[in-house]
Design a protein around this nucleic acid. Sequence first.
DNA 1: GCCAACGTTGGC
DNA 2: GCCAACGTTGGC
Length: 147
Amino acid sequence: MKTEPEAFSLDDLAERGQEPWDGIRNYQARNFMRSMTPGDGVFIYHSRVLIPGIVGVADVRTSAHPDPTQFDSSCKYYDPNSKAETPRWDLVDVGFRGRLTSVVSLDELRRMSVFSDSPLIRKGNRLSILPITEAQWTAVLERVELV
DNA sequence: GCCAACGTTGGC
DNA sequence: GCCAACGTTGGC
């Protein structure tokens, strides 16, 4: 799951312990959240920084449920087209698990064979939530310590 | 249902 | 801060 640390960082997640991952307004990303199960491992990826990459580990704490911000007209995530009876946008709650001792950078991910097919490393990719494979999970955690 | 215009993402 | 890439919107 990607985040711009200026808006919400891994440290913010660590501080709060758990966070509803709201504001996702992309159908593909939403569908990936719908396929998540509590307990699933999550990599937290920092984007729009000097060295973009995976900085920490989290886990899924709830299954997908309607994102309340879509109904809040004062919120930037408000969606006037979403109806309470048929909510358009979902979120999952994400819990902090740990920090990586060093960033596994996008540059590094590009050089790892297990990521060669991942949209994550493709230019112009704008998906903020992407599935990862067991092999990707293992490969990243083999390179760094989780603390 | 096409597609131009627009808005947003995110690496650089 | 720039701008390529891409998803969404809405006129036709």
